[in-house]
Design a protein around this nucleic acid. Structure first.
Length: 878
RNA sequence: GGGCGGGUAGCUCAGUUGGCUAGAGCGACGGCCUUACAAGCCGUAGGUCACAGGUUCAAGUCCUGUUCCGCCUACCA
């Protein structure tokens, strides 16, 4: 037992235990079991990605829940897997190809996809390995990938169902087009970014007159696609122009001047150029007035033939520059006014999005959203923290059709076949050999792929084998809780709820816990470019997985952001070391321990058992309520500041020196029992160190992972022991405080005289203090009596109605002692006045609960006693 | 424009349905290498809980307003 290293070295044990758990198959949850089910599906990380701190938090919390429920006796499934992450992954690959001097077009679709799969196979291990390093107890034999065969079938099945229900349709509308990625994206993928733009004021001549109308635009190049000018119908400035025709500068296209209430009288010049093909509002106006749509852009963002020969082929931003110069030269340009405004950027590549009309596939989510809202309102799914419910409602209530097609290659190809013969569509789960309408063999599959979030939306049931009716689905669906960051509530959580209700007729999870995003220690978002990101892997290496996990869980308050400082991880490491060393001490004195029930329990034994019992209750409640940080905090406080600071110190006497084998045995038994139980409670947060220590302690079973979660034992709650210990600890603190403040060196032995007017207190202190005190401070002799004479030149501490005298001849400084006591007295007086005032108020006595009043009275009496004793002693100092 | 969250110790943050003396980690200061731990131990200082009202016997906690910060959402060219 003495071969335990002095400091905790995480690396030596982490790998060992993880392998042990896996070999024992503890992570696996059976499809059928007598145990009640508990299930969580992992938010699948990008298969080609690596673990960042947000993942670390997310998965640490899931592992806490899973390990805890598993210990509670649930058949706990943590379903792992990865996501193909369509566009981002493809962009990274394209960059790599460019570096190799080639491109996806050059390779062709088939070769490109082949490369993607190779890359996927190579990099899969990275993120999985990182999750393992973190200690995640995922059921690895169930690992899934969004593009594996089963999940692909699920995607096609869901698509076909939705199509047959008339919810999927194709249409040519205005979409957010990313010229860089050359695909449509949904509203959610567009991030408005404030830029320092300009307002370009331009004169449009009125046909057959010298009059001009001044318009203002932030995107002058779109004028090449203008097909009207609009004013507000009640705008007196422009009444005379309505119905007339303006002439587009440069292209000289004729533009009807129309009246539309959309136009804001106050904004700009009040006259709006209308570009139905390149602005969502103008598109609507165009629909209302049956305006022509002139598309001036190619998919790559360059200008097409409709823009005129001069501008054709230019990129849109280059065109803007040239065009503005031309307008200036031809005296159409009036002025350029700086105008900061938000412009949509693609969240995956950060390039400016263009509104663009193109044929896309849409999912009409409105009916699914209504069902989801009903389910949420009924409480079938509960959001935590509660404020997230409102966000969910708000988004669901204002939901727009979801454009689900992407003009990319990496992803699930639409299960749609076009027929060259009859031009009808065949939509099927399995590839058809002929057209369903005319039986022609001249069919080909649509080249587009689905939005990645479509397959992610099926994740809670596709991973369990849907559309097959598997045992896993029967057992584990709906899952118990989904744990993820609030930033993907709409992207992912909302879609899973909609698709879960659609495909499974039941919400995918009962609870959604939306945790914080991790920021740095100053509340700044962590990002690689800022250089303030904490990288989990080196962090685990430096501090250990347990320390890192503890820091994450300890910080996981229900806030939108966590400011995680390196110092908190450091604190986690120190905590691990504390656990290690407390265990080390105990283990060094367990050589002769024969497991068995402790017999003669002393006061402190009963106290620590009672405190442990309370801790079990608190921690369990915290976890039930997803208050992870409170759970961690409670355990930290108990283990460090109660068990280590007091209990362990108190039993050293019995462990080291006693000749009484029963006394020693009791100390050994209680201490190991408490530590063992605490390790079990701490296991979900710090799995490795707790297993290592648990294995060395007396225990039942082969792993802490499968050991039962501690149950509160009502019989061990002992308020009397807690009260008595509290009194003793207060007295000890009083003595320590005097010594500390008077700078009495720890080595010097002082005399202690305690006046305890209450006979019960006097008896308690007489019985225990002499025994307990040596663990905390040195003294030559101690006397406890109901009355004491104050020795000359003594320092004084007042604890409730007890007075502690410490004669300090030669050390004591009258002035310093006077200051010290006066300061205490002031503090007491301040609180006393307040308490007196409260109790003098008849309304308080009448209306406050009896317990609160009684509490206040007790406190007042205590304060009066302290005040009196402090005053007397001050007087004696002269 | 609409909505949400926040302002508590030098820093980062806890503070369950209003009710004991507002707490923790880190940092600061003073003292200790006491055979589990200096990644430690002991002690000390530091807060008119953003501001102004209100409800209540009682407000960091509930309500109203003001202000500052952050975020989400939205079609102002």
């Amino acid at each position: 037992m003495t071969d335990i290293p002095k400091t905790y070295a995480p690396h030596d044990i982490e790998e060992k235990w993880y392998k042990f758990w896996r070999d024992k198959d503890y992570f696996h949850a059976a499809d059928t079991s007598d145990k009640p089910p508990y299930s969580v599906v992992i938010p699948p990380p990008n298969i080609t990605g690596s673990l960042h701190i947000g993942h670390a938090l997310d998965n640490a919390l899931q592992d806490v829940l899973i390990r805890w429920r598993r210990m509670q006796g649930y058949n706990a499934l943590w379903m792992p897997g990865t996501d193909h992450a369509g566009i981002v992954t493809e962009i990274i690959m394209e960059k790599q190809l460019a570096a190799w001097g080639t491109s996806r077009e050059e390779l062709g679709r088939e070769k490109f996809i082949e490369r993607m799969w190779n890359w996927k196979d190579e990099s899969r291990g990275t993120i999985i390995d990182q999750l393992e390093q973190l200690g995640c107890s995922c059921d690895w034999e169930r690992e899934r990938f969004t593009m594996d065969e089963g999940l692909s079938k699920a995607v096609r099945t869901a698509f076909v169902q939705l199509y047959n229900d008339g919810l999927i349709y194709r249409g040519e509308y205005m979409v957010n087009w990313c010229p860089n990625c050359q695909t449509a994206v949904s509203d959610l993928e567009v991030e408005p970014v404030e830029i320092d733009g300009n307002f370009y004021h331009i004169n449009y001549p009125i046909k057959d007159s010298d009059a001009l109308v001044e318009i203002a635009t932030t995107r002058p190049e779109t004028m090449l696609g203008d097909t009207a000018v609009a004013v507000h119908p009640e705008d007196t400035r422009y009444q005379h122009l309505i119905g007339k025709t303006a002439v587009l500068p440069i292209l000289e296209r004729e533009l009807p001047i129309i009246a539309d209430e959309y136009v804001d009288l106050e904004f700009g010049t009040g006259a709006l150029k209308v570009t139905p093909a390149h602005d969502p509002n103008d598109y609507e106006i165009g629909q209302r007035h049956e305006l022509e749509q002139v598309n001036i852009l190619n998919p790559d963002g360059s200008l097409n033939e409709n823009a005129g020969t001069k501008y054709q082929g230019m990129d849109r931003f280059e065109c803007r520059k040239v065009l503005v110069e031309d307008l200036r030269e031809q005296e159409y340009l009036i002025r350029i006014v700086p105008h900061p405004h938000a412009v949509g950027h693609h969240d995956r590549c950060n390039q400016i999005i263009e509104p663009y009309i193109s044929p896309q596939w849409y999912l009409n989510v409105k009916p699914l959203a209504e069902r989801s809202l009903e389910a949420a309102r009924r409480g079938d799914v509960v959001f935590l923290p509660e404020r997230e419910t409102k966000r969910f409602y708000q988004w669901m209530e204002n939901i727009e059709p979801w454009p689900i097609s992407r003009q990319r290659w990496w992803g699930h190809q639409l299960p749609i076949w076009h027929c060259d013969a009859c031009e009808e569509l065949t939509v099927a789960v399995t590839p058809p050999s002929q057209c369903a309408h005319c039986n022609s063999k001249e069919i080909w599959q649509d080249e587009e792929v689905l939005d990645t979030w479509f397959s992610s939306g099926l994740w809670p049931f596709s991973t369990m084998g849907w559309p097959d009716e598997t045992e896993a689905l029967k057992t584990f669906y709906p899952t118990s809780v989904l744990v993820t960051g609030w930033d993907i509530l709409f992207f992912w959580v909302a879609r899973m709820i909609m698709l879960g209700l659609q495909c499974m007729d039941e919400v995918p999870f009962r609870h959604v816990y939306l945790h914080a995003l991790v920021a740095d220690e100053h509340g700044q978002k962590q990002s690689k470019s800022k250089g303030n990101a904490i990288d989990p892997v080196p962090t685990i290496h430096e501090y250990g997985a347990d320390a890192f996990r503890f820091a994450l869980v300890f910080s996981a308050a229900p806030n939108p952001y966590i400011a995680l400082a390196e110092s908190q991880i450091e604190a986690g490491k120190r905590f691990a070391n504390k656990i290690w060393n407390a265990s080390r001490l105990l283990l060094m004195h367990l050589d002769d321990f024969q497991p068995g029930q402790p017999t003669d329990l002393t006061l402190c034994d009963r106290w620590i058992r009672s405190r442990f019992n309370t801790t079990v209750e608190t921690v369990t409640t915290c976890l039930e309520e997803f208050r992870f940080n409170d759970a961690a905090h409670t355990l930290y406080e108990f283990l460090w500041h109660e068990f280590c600071d007091w209990y362990v110190e108190l039993i050293k006497q019995r462990l080291y020196y006693t000749d009484d084998p029963t006394a020693k045995h009791t100390a050994q038994a209680v201490a190991s029992e408490i530590l063992e139980g605490t390790m079990r409670m701490l296991h979900p947060i710090m799995p490795f160190i707790t297993e290592e220590i648990w294995q060395r302690l007396p225990h039942e079973g082969e792993s802490i992972m499968t050991a039962p979660w501690p149950q509160p034992q009502a019989a061990e709650t002992d308020p009397k022991a807690e009260e008595a210990m509290q009194t003793i600890m207060d007295v000890i603190d009083g003595i320590r405080s005097v010594r500390g403040e008077m700078n009495v060196p720890p080595s010097s032995e002082v005399e202690i005289r305690i006046q305890a007017p209450n006979p019960e207190t006097a008896e308690l202190l007489t019985e225990h203090l002499e025994e307990y005190l040596p663990a905390f401070t040195r003294f030559s002799q101690i006397s406890i009596a109901e009355h004491q004479e104050k020795p000359a030149a003594a320092a004084v501490a007042v604890i409730s109605d007890n007075v502690i005298y410490i004669p300090l001849a030669g050390i004591i400084d009258i002035e310093k002692e006077t200051d010290r006591l006066q300061k205490r007295l002031n503090k007491v007086l301040k609180e006393l006045t307040g308490a007196q005032k409260t109790l003098d108020n008849p309304n308080f006595v009448d209306r406050a609960p009896e317990a609160v009043v009684q509490q206040k009275r007790t406190r007042l009496a205590e304060l009066e006693s302290e005040q009196e004793k402090l005053a007397t002693n001050l007087e004696m100092l002269g």
